[in-house]
Amino acid sequence: MNSVAKSLGLKDDKFYINIQRYGNTSAASVGIALAEAFESGTIKDGDYVLLTAFGAGLTWGSTLIKF
């Protein structure tokens, strides 16, 4: 994630990372991070949030939502 931030010219505080607490929770990772980010005030109603996940076999998915 640090490489992605650097290549996009974004600061680390634009990323919500919780893998250190849970490890890889597979498909639940995005939902858990989104809920935690909202509860902590990191994201608020009306914010644009880019959700991206990478999986085994180089699968990935991404979407931009207005929260």
Rank of each mutant, 00 (worst) to 15 (best):
G9T: 10
T52S: 12
A5C: 15
T59Q: 10
F15I: 12
S62K: 11
D12K: 15
V4G: 11
T52E: 05
Y16I: 12
Y22W: 09
L58R: 04
W60C: 10
Y48M: 02
T63C: 13
G9H: 13
I19N: 05
A28G: 07
G41S: 06
D45G: 05
G46H: 03
T52M: 13
I17F: 08
K14M: 15
Y22C: 03
G9W: 10
D12T: 09
Q20T: 02
S7Q: 11
T52W: 00
V49C: 06
L34V: 13
Y22P: 00
I32M: 08
A28R: 06
R21K: 15
E39R: 10
L8R: 06
N2T: 11
S62T: 15
A33Y: 00
G61Q: 08
N18S: 14
I65D: 01
L8M: 12
W60G: 14
L8T: 04
G23H: 09
G31D: 08
N24I: 00
T63Y: 08
N2L: 11
D13K: 13
L50T: 05
G55N: 05
G23D: 13
G61C: 09
L8Q: 11
G46I: 03
F38P: 00
G61L: 03
G57V: 08
T52R: 04
F38G: 10
G9M: 08
K66S: 02
L34E: 01
T42G: 05
L10H: 08
I43Y: 04
L51H: 01
G41D: 06
E39G: 02
G31E: 08
N2E: 14
T63F: 05
K44I: 07
S29Q: 04
L34F: 15
D12S: 15
V30F: 00
I65G: 04
L58N: 01
G23E: 09
L51F: 07
G9V: 08
T25I: 09
T63M: 13
I19W: 02
D13A: 11
V4S: 08
A27E: 01
R21E: 14
D13P: 05
Q20A: 10
I32G: 02
V49Q: 09
L58Y: 06
G61F: 03
K6N: 13
S7E: 14
G41M: 03
Y22R: 03
G57C: 01
A56P: 07
V30R: 00
Y48K: 09
L10W: 09
A27F: 08
N24V: 00
G31Q: 12
I43S: 01
I32R: 02
E36M: 04
D13I: 09
T63K: 07
F54Y: 13
A37E: 01
S26P: 09
K44A: 10
K14W: 10
V30Q: 01
A37I: 02
S26C: 09
L50K: 06
S62M: 14
D45Y: 04
L10D: 04
A5I: 00
L50A: 11
A37S: 13
T59F: 01
Y22M: 02
S62G: 15
G46E: 05
S40D: 14
N2C: 08
